[in-house]
Design a protein around this nucleic acid. Structure first.
Lengths: 200, 200
DNA sequence: GTTAGCATGTAAGGAGTTACATGATTTT
DNA sequence: AAAATCATGTAACTCCTTACATGCTAAC
């Protein structure tokens, strides 16, 4: 998920880690930042996999063999997505399986990069998400119906609030799906833009 | 978090693992169950810590040293909370620090066992949670104000929906806090029930 | 010249998951 | 007697966090 988000951000423009982290917080929903302890190892893995490249100043040039073991001396490292990285990103962005809409935060990230996703794939993901959330809602509803008697007020309030939340998400998804379909039918005659609808 | 929930459920009545898992799903918000790969190691840890005890049938009695290494032969194991376990649970249930209301799902579990929490502690936790969520809301709001221009429709929708969600949570918390305060003032004259308000 | 914010990383650990392995009991 | 569901557990792994360690750069 993190790697997907990193690829997505670097797809837009090269960045160094610190900047990446700030952008990541926005993509991952306003507050709650990723920690450097996750970010840098992730960058390392992506670089090892050849999906991004790093432009390090590397200041070990023109230095005699110094006694201080050269612990510091780090330069600002700018990361750029590679051709393989872009390929991988478009592969990820085209996936329509459950991993795209089941729980675990990936759906939010997918949505954040939806402009890179083809219109039909967008629709399938939104509908998949809706199915998932509807099932959650059913589970919650039946759980509430079964246990309504023996639960105290707090647990009941918790479940009621949870139910309202998933209910709102379903309605929100319905709106997104409607808009998506309306766009699809009005755009199919004029064969413009397959990517980047609205925005920018 | 899991261990807290297990203690809370066993506090109500002894249970075996399988049953525990079902009850856990309800406590942890309707759908999304815990897996056995989490549950059984957690039970093992709690038993090792002396917080719960297990009542195993242990069928190795009256058996000669068999050649088959006795791989199967497991009985239904019933777990019971110990005196130390209850003590620990009431310790956890009285905590008012950030771990009780910051993100990470603990708040939901705390609420599920709120009837075991004293009224003043309940209020402090609810107010702490409200502060946390209000801060999230501020973060989201300013992030949205800053980036409204350069974001595409999907990211905007995502943030808008997120903002509405935290907004709803704040309103919900306000209601809970109001009710809590009303109960506190109407109950203080009649010195009844310090625990178990409503429910059961 | 010192504080605040920018910047990069590692090591250890927490809290769960999936996949596997096994068997008992109930229902059809 | 086959299938479903109840029941218990381990091993390997995922994905993140916190705490630590280090240094650069701009502003006051």
């Amino acid at each position: 998920m993190l790697e997907f988000a990193i690829l997505g951000l670097l797809h837009q423009s090269p960045m160094h880690g610190y900047e990446l982290r700030k952008q990541l917080s926005e993509v991952l929903g306003g507050m709650r930042s990723i920690s450097y302890g996750s970010l840098y190892p992730a960058l390392k893995r992506l670089r090892a996999a050849g999906l991004i490249s790093s432009d390090e100043p590397d200041p070990r040039a023109l230095l005699p063999a110094d006694a201080p073991p050269l612990t510091g001396r780090r330069g600002k490292v700018v990361y750029t997505i590679t051709a393989e990285g872009k390929e991988r990103f478009h592969e990820l962005v085209s996936q329509t399986g459950p991993e795209a809409y089941d729980d675990g935060g990936l759906f939010g990230v997918r949505l954040a990069f939806f402009r890179h996703t083809a219109a039909d794939v967008r629709l399938r993901i939104l509908e998949g998400r809706r199915r998932t959330v509807e099932q959650q809602r059913e589970g919650l509803r039946s759980s509430l119906a079964r246990t309504r008697q023996r639960l105290d007020r707090y647990t009941l309030e918790l479940q009621r609030h949870g139910l309202e939340s998933v209910d709102r998400e379903v309605r929100w998804l319905n709106e997104l799906i409607d808009t998506e379909r309306r766009e699809a039918t009005t755009t199919e005659s004029t064969s413009s833009e397959k990517e980047n609808p609205w925005g920018q």
